[in-house]
Amino acid sequence: MAHGAVVLIAAVGSIATSPPRWHVAATPAAKASSGKGQLVTIEASAGPTVMAGNGSIGRLLRPEGQAGAWTGRADYFVPPSEALTSVGITGTCSGGGSCAKCEPPPTAFVRIVSTVEVEPWVLDASSTPANIDLTAPESRPSFRVVVAATRPPALAVKLAAPMAAGFYVSEMPGNPYVDPKDDPQAATKRYAFSVSWYRDTQAAGPWVGAWTPSVTISGYCKEPGPCVVPASESVTILSIEGPPGSGAASTSPPRGAAPAGSAGP
């Protein structure tokens, strides 16, 4: 009897261990005209989570020119190839796991104040191809791509030829980071990505191929006139670390073999 009661209390205690979360969202604006970027001004009662993407890969947008605490209002730049996918703030209800309904506090709000189309600049860089071999059914090769950039980059993956494979791209925790060899005051910071491959079990192959990572940074021109990439901006793929035989470095020190970036439209 006592044992059953303790098991019941333990079950309820385990279920109620984490507090519920509330969420307030704003409706994202439509995608910009072809070739244009968007400057979205957002007001919120707390630092919002702003996501953008191009359909397959979503990423977190950071506020323009705001590095410290949330001031209540900020601009977010959406690159020309992407659209805003979600804007929201979250918080937790006190009394961890209580049965009361978890409602946002009356002071919580997030709204898109304005969305303006802007002339973008785009700077990209790519690297030499790396090989993947998914012949073994259990193989799930993973690569670490290290990028040096003056602002948060977006990473894309291109296959040299069609393959029966899929992949996940995720930003490593701790981005951006400063390598001990780097100048901590420099505008260029390092960003690490993980690219994990898996075999498409529904297909009959091919299982072997090559892929190329490419990274892009973008911004917008505040002044009217021709929009060119500012000289102070740069993006470079420093290294690709992968399994032996992939053609990528398999040791952790990054290589400096990086093709020069090229300005895009």
Partner: peptide, 21 residues
Amino acid sequence: FRALVAILGGGSPGAVGRVAL
């Protein structure tokens, strides 16, 4: 649990939400 309390209180059960970790 939340839905039951909400229904007993005369409200709607609401949607499933995530917890914070």
